[in-house]
Amino acid sequence: DEVTIHLGDKTIRVDGLDKELLEILKELARRGADEEELRKEIERWER
Rank of each mutant, 00 (worst) to 15 (best):
R47C: 15
A29S: 07
V3A: 14
R44I: 11
H6G: 07
K10W: 07
T11K: 05
I42A: 02
L21D: 00
I5S: 03
E35A: 08
D9Y: 04
I5F: 02
E43L: 08
L7T: 06
D18P: 15
L21H: 02
E41K: 02
E36V: 12
K19C: 06
E36Q: 11
E37T: 14
V3D: 12
E36W: 10
E35M: 05
L17R: 04
D1W: 10
K40A: 15
I5Y: 01
A33F: 07
E36N: 07
D1V: 13
L38M: 07
L21V: 02
R31C: 09
I24Y: 11
G32Y: 01
D9C: 04
E37Y: 06
D15F: 03
L22M: 10
A33V: 06
E27A: 05
D9L: 05
D34E: 08
L22P: 00
I24Q: 05
T11Y: 10
R44M: 10
D1A: 14
D1H: 13
A29L: 13
V3I: 14
D18I: 06
E37P: 00
I42F: 03
G32Q: 01
E35V: 09
E35W: 06
T11A: 11
D9T: 03
R44D: 09
E2P: 11
R31A: 15
H6K: 11
K26Q: 14
T11H: 06
K10Q: 12
G16R: 09
E27S: 07
L17I: 13
D18G: 07
H6I: 14
R13M: 08
R44T: 08
V14H: 04
K10H: 13
I24K: 09
R47F: 14
E41T: 12
H6C: 08
L25N: 00
E20V: 10
D15T: 09
E27D: 13
G32R: 01
E20T: 10
E2D: 12
G8H: 11
K19M: 09
E23L: 11
E23I: 11
I5R: 01
K19N: 12
D9I: 03
E20H: 08
K19V: 09
L25K: 00
E46S: 05
D1M: 11
D34P: 10
A29Q: 07
L25W: 00
L38W: 04
K26R: 15
L25V: 03
L17F: 10
L38D: 00
K10N: 11
E20A: 14
T4M: 13
L38R: 01
E46L: 13
I12E: 02
K40L: 13
L21W: 02
G16Q: 12
G32F: 01
E27Q: 05
D34L: 06
E23H: 07
G8L: 10
V14M: 04
E23T: 10
H6W: 09
I5G: 02
D9M: 02
D1F: 13
E27G: 05
V3Q: 15
E35F: 07
E36T: 10
L7F: 12
G8C: 04
E23F: 08
A33G: 06
I24A: 06
R47L: 15
G32S: 02
I42N: 00
I42H: 01
L25Q: 00
K19H: 11
E41W: 08
K10G: 11
R47S: 15
E37A: 13
K19Q: 11
D34W: 02
I42Q: 02
R13I: 13
I5E: 04
W45Y: 08
G8Q: 11
E43N: 05
R44Y: 08
E36M: 12
I24C: 02
K19P: 15
E41L: 07
L28Q: 02
R30Q: 09
D34G: 13
R31H: 11
K10S: 14
R30K: 14
R47Y: 15
D18W: 05
I12L: 10
K40T: 08
I42G: 00
R39A: 08
E37L: 06
V3T: 13
L28W: 02
G32L: 01
K10I: 15
A33E: 03
D18Q: 09
R39M: 15
E41R: 03
L7H: 04
D15M: 03
E20C: 05
L25C: 03
R30T: 08
E41Y: 09
W45T: 01
E37K: 08
D9V: 02
K19R: 11
R30I: 13
D34M: 07
L21P: 00
L28T: 00
D15H: 12
E43W: 04
E36D: 14
L7M: 08
I12M: 08
E27W: 03
R47P: 12
E2C: 07
L38E: 00
G16C: 05
E37H: 06
L28S: 02
K40V: 06
V3W: 15
E35T: 05
K26A: 07
K19E: 11
D9A: 02
E46F: 11
K10F: 15
K10L: 15
L38A: 02
R44Q: 11
A33C: 03
R44P: 00
R39D: 02
I42Y: 04
I42K: 01
L38H: 00
E41N: 02
R31D: 09
W45P: 00
I12G: 02
E27N: 06
K26C: 05
E43I: 05
R31Q: 14
K26E: 08
L28M: 15
L25A: 00
L17W: 07
E43T: 04
K26D: 05
R39G: 03
L17T: 04
L25F: 01
E37I: 09
E41H: 04
R39P: 00
K19I: 11
L25G: 00
K26F: 15
D9Q: 03
V3M: 14
R31F: 09
E23W: 10
E43M: 06
D1I: 13
D18E: 09
E36R: 08
A33S: 05
L22A: 08
E37M: 12
E36S: 10
E36Y: 12
R31E: 09
E37W: 03
L7K: 02
G32M: 01
R30C: 06
V3F: 15
D15Y: 05
D9H: 06
I12K: 00
K40H: 06
E2K: 10
V3R: 04
R31G: 07
K40R: 12
R30M: 13
A29N: 04
L21S: 01
V3P: 09
A29E: 06
D15Q: 11
E27I: 06
I5T: 03
E2A: 13
E46Y: 14
E20F: 07
E36H: 12
L28F: 04
I24G: 01
I24F: 07
D15L: 03
E35G: 03
G16K: 10
D34F: 03
D34Y: 03
G8E: 07
E41Q: 09
